[in-house]
């Protein structure tokens, strides 16, 4: 049953050291505010799952929260490489991390299998691909009906998933629209689900009947954090702050600059700053 609480309390109650956690969002609706709260609370030894680990995982890895990263594309979208993640992989700074690498198809299928309560996902993939040789979690099964060899990967079953969404109603039902990504699957695959929202409205009575709504009983906690996806965007609320993504390339290129930036913009602030960050957009 969805519990309305502050982001600080929602993170404190649902994210523990050593957890396997997904902060999902596919360019759109990336839960930046929730990730920053996890950084402020200093969680450790996390296994981070994400199709497209971008700035927030770069920040979490650079601040030493991550033990393992399970991913399929580690880049700053449209800009370049993830410099903090590279520094951890190439130079073990600030600590060594383990990487478990998949393709997008495998990750999407693994979330869907998790949401469906299956132990693994089966799909036509990885043919001729080198990842099969370096990731022991990629296996194959033979179709019992046709004999076709198909790829199999374990289902994702995060301890907790964090997503950002447009709206919740007073009951705690959650609306996601626009590029919906893999958030519904990530949330339903997880043991606990925390959602930050732009807005809390009375009810969803006037909505189109087929919109993506996650019923309140699938959500553990909801925190009202306007602007909580910035510099990602929320369809219908504010656009993507492309300049901030470009700027991150410079900030993340230098360890000292990164550390100073994180102190000023993450450690020393609270979730309320996100609303002001999107005002000028």
């Amino acid at each position: 049953m969805a519990k309305f609480q502050s982001l600080k309390d929602a993170v404190a109650e649902n994210l523990r050291d050593g957890d396997t956690v997904a902060f999902e969002g596919f360019t759109h609706l990336i839960p930046h505010a929730a990730a920053h709260e996890a950084i402020r609370q200093g969680r450790r030894d996390l296994t981070l799952i994400r199709m497209t680990p971008d700035i927030i995982y770069d920040q979490m890895i650079g601040m030493g929260l991550a033990k393992t990263v399970i991913f399929s594309y580690a880049g700053n979208p449209g800009v370049g490489l993830l410099r903090r993640m590279r520094d951890a992989i190439e130079n073990e700074w600030p600590r060594a991390i383990e990487t478990v690498e998949h393709s997008h198809a495998a990750m999407a299928n693994a979330y869907e299998a998790g949401a469906a309560g299956l132990p693994c996902a089966v799909f036509r993939g990885y043919r001729g691909a080198g990842l099969k040789d370096v990731n022991p979690a990629i296996k194959s099964v033979t179709c019992p009906f046709t004999g076709e060899e198909l790829a199999a990967v374990p289902a994702h079953r995060p301890d907790v998933s964090f997503i950002h969404a447009q709206k919740a109603n007073r009951r705690g039902d959650v609306l996601v629209e626009g590029i919906v990504g893999v958030q519904k699957e990530a949330l339903l695959a997880a043991k606990r689900a925390v959602v930050t929202v732009e807005e809390i409205v009375e009810d969803f009575d006037d909505l189109h009947p087929n919109l993506c709504v996650l019923p309140h009983w699938t959500v553990t906690a909801i925190a009202h954090v306007p602007g909580g996806a910035h510099p990602s965007y929320t369809h219908g609320y504010y656009p993507r702050d492309n300049a901030a993504y470009l700027e991150w390339d410079k900030i993340s290129a230098d360890r000292d600059l990164f550390t100073t930036w994180m102190k000023a913009n993450v450690l020393d602030v609270s979730p309320e700053v996100f609303a002001s960050r999107v005002e000028a957009l």
Partner: peptide, 11 residues
Amino acid sequence: VRLPGGGGAPE
């Protein structure tokens, strides 16, 4: 050099 990875490309 650690590049971004395959994303959707393998499939």
